[in-house]
Structure formats: structure tokens, C-alpha cells
Design a protein around this nucleic acid. Structure first.
Length: 153
DNA sequence: GCCAACGTTGGC
DNA sequence: GCCAACGTTGGC
């Protein structure tokens, strides 16, 4: 089992929205970055655990945990002209963008703030805290996961 | 709202 | 294939 961190803007989709889906699965779609796409297509696997990170909001940080319930498959929004994520250059026979399905596992009582994550000596390799830090889907090592999880609870 | 970082586009 | 222009991300 591997570990990941997915970013989301809570104004659009938050950990609470995910929690409100009860036991339903949720497609994690709209990812339009090639590096993130490669992770979704090739590496994110059934049963993997995912930190849900809230970005571009008042309390940026890790808000909870989700579980991957379906591995990478083509993101249908790329073929939908009505969608904000429509990509006219992507063809159904060779889809450019992928998504996975997740389900809610846990919401932390308090968001683990980015500032605290940056202050943790063990968290220096995570793309989130490296310069730029714009990657929206990133791998988390087991030791990073354990330290972040412990700090969040 | 500002602005730095950085990915993408497109002319050549 | 280079690289300047442009658009987007995302913390602050």
C-alpha cells in the first residue's frame, strides 16, 4: 500500500463534502497537470491512503484522509464540452487525463497547518514544502505519512 | 489582491 | 528545439 497527498480547494470540494458522501465513492477528476496525471494513471492503486489537503483558503493544510477505491481510469470530464475540464485535444481512443475514485475515511479535528508541516524536520522532501510546491498529486513516504498523521491527531 | 514560481503555448 | 509571453497556482 502506498500513500499520497491530493490537493483540493475547499471552496470547490472539501473534506466535509467528501464526508457527506457517506460510503459512496467520489471521482477525483479535473487534474490537468502531466506529472500529477502520471501518478493517477500509473501509480495510485486500490487501497492506497490519501491525505486530503486544503489549498487556497483560510486554513491551508491537511484536513483528513481518504482511501482509493478505484485505480486510474480515463477522466470523463475531458470529453464533455459542458465541463470546465473539457479538453478538445484529447481523444477517446487515447485519453490524455485520468482520475481515480476515493472514499472518505477520516476528518481531523483540526487542519494540520502548512506552516507546521514546513516546521517538521522530517518533512523536507515532500513536494508540498519544496520551492514552488504546486504539484497537486504527490507521493508521501511511509515515514512521512506516520509523522504527519501523528501530528494531525 | 499581490506576486513568485513554474507549466504551457506558439512564433521562429 | 529555443525561449519569450502568457496563464495558473497558491501562500501570504
Amino acid at each position: 500500500m502506498a500513500y499520497w497527498l491530493f490537493k483540493t480547494e475547499p471552496d470547490a470540494f472539501s473534506i466535509d463534502d467528501l464526508a457527506n458522501r457517506e460510503n459512496q465513492t467520489e471521482p477525483w477528476d479535473g487534474v490537468r497537470n502531466y506529472q500529477a496525471r502520471n501518478f493517477l494513471r500509473d501509480d495510485v492503486a486500490l487501497g492506497d491512503r490519501v491525505f486530503i489537503y486544503h489549498s487556497s483558503c483560510k486554513h491551508v493544510g491537511i484536513a483528513g484522509v481518504a482511501e482509493v477505491v478505484k485505480a486510474g481510469y480515463p477522466d470523463a470530464t475531458q470529453f464533455d464540452p459542458e465541463s470546465n475540464y473539457y479538453d478538445p485535444k484529447s481523444l477517446p481512443e487515447s485519453p490524455r487525463w485520468f482520475r481515480v475514485d476515493v472514499k472518505f475515511v477520516e476528518k481531523f479535528h483540526k487542519v494540520l497547518p502548512l506552516a507546521e508541516i514546513k516546521a517538521m524536520p522530517a518533512i523536507v522532501e515532500l513536494p508540498l514544502v519544496k520551492k514552488g510546491g504546486r504539484l497537486s498529486i504527490m507521493p508521501v513516504s511511509e515515514s512521512e505519512w506516520q509523522q504527519l498523521y501523528a501530528a494531525a491527531r
